[in-house]
Design a protein around this nucleic acid. Structure first.
Lengths: 119, 119
DNA sequence: TAAACATATGAACAAATATTCATATGTTGT
DNA sequence: ACAACATATGAATATTTGTTCATATGTTTA
C-alpha cells in the first residue's frame, strides 16, 4: 500500500510540489560558492600546518618550508592561497617576507575544527 | 648590514635552530589529515546545498535531486560522502531513503561559516 | 657590481574530485 | 510475476588542485 506523503514527509504536498516549493529555499549559488571557498582554504593539510605554525609565531617563507620539510615554491604557492583568502598577511623586512595570521578568527575556526576531530 | 635574528624573529635562535626547534611543534600528520578531511566535506557547493536543505527538512534522494536540479546519481554520490563522514543519516521507508542531519553540530558549523562570508 | 639569498610565479605534471552514464538491487502497485 | 519507481555504485570523463621545475624580481653582503 502506498504510504501517504503526509506520513512520509510531514506535509500534504506531493513530491513535485514539495520540490517546487523548496527551490526557493535553496542556498543561493552565490552563498554556496563563497561558503565552499571559505571551507576549501582549510581543507588542505599543508595549509592547516602553516596556519598552525603561524598561530604560534610569525615566520618567514623559508622557515615554514624548513619546518615542514617542503620546497620554498610549494609553501609560497600555498601562502598565496592563504593571502588571497585573507587568512594571512605578509610583512616585508629586507629580503624576508614574514607571515602572520590576519586575525583571531582564523585560529578560532582552526580550533573549532580540531575540537570536532579529537572529541 | 645584517639584521640580527633576534630583531627579525624575536628569538636568539638562528633560522636553522628555529626550524629544528619548531619541527616538534608541527601539527602532526594524523591531526592534519583528519582536520583536512573534516573541512573538505564542507568545501563543495552541492554538499553545502544538501546540508542546507536537510537543516530545514528531512528529504529523500529524488526530492533533493529535484530541488537542486541535479541527477539522482550525482546526489547519491554526494550523500555517500556525507554519510561516510557521518554528517547525515539515512532512514529507509519503503523504496525511499530519507536523509537528515546527524546532529546539530553540522548546522552549527554551516552557520558559523555562513556568518564569516556574509559578515 | 657580482654573488648569494629570499620570494614569487607561470607552466607542466600528477593526483584528487565531481558528474555522467550504464546498470544492479530492492520495493511497490497492478 | 511484471512494470515502474527509488536508490546505489563502478567506470569513464572532465575539472580542479597541489607540487615541482625553471626562472624572474628584488635585497643583502662581499
Amino acid at each position: 500500500m502506498e504510504e501517504n506523503l503526509k506520513d512520509i514527509c510531514g506535509t500534504d504536498m506531493g513530491h513535485e510540489d514539495l520540490i517546487k516549493e523548496n527551490k526557493a529555499n535553496t542556498l543561493c549559488d552565490d552563498h554556496a560558492y563563497h561558503l565552499a571557498e571559505f571551507f576549501k582554504v582549510y581543507s588542505d593539510e599543508t595549509r592547516l600546518k602553516i596556519i598552525h605554525l603561524l598561530s604560534l609565531k610569525e615566520l618567514c617563507v623559508h622557515e615554514i618550508a624548513g619546518i615542514l620539510d617542503m620546497s620554498q615554491s610549494a609553501i609560497s604557492h600555498q601562502l598565496k592561497v592563504l593571502r588571497n583568502q585573507k587568512l594571512v598577511k605578509p610583512r616585508k623586512s629586507g629580503k624576508h617576507v614574514f607571515y602572520s595570521l590576519s586575525d583571531d578568527h582564523v585560529v578560532t575556526i582552526f580550533k573549532n575544527g580540531l575540537d570536532h576531530i579529537v572529541e
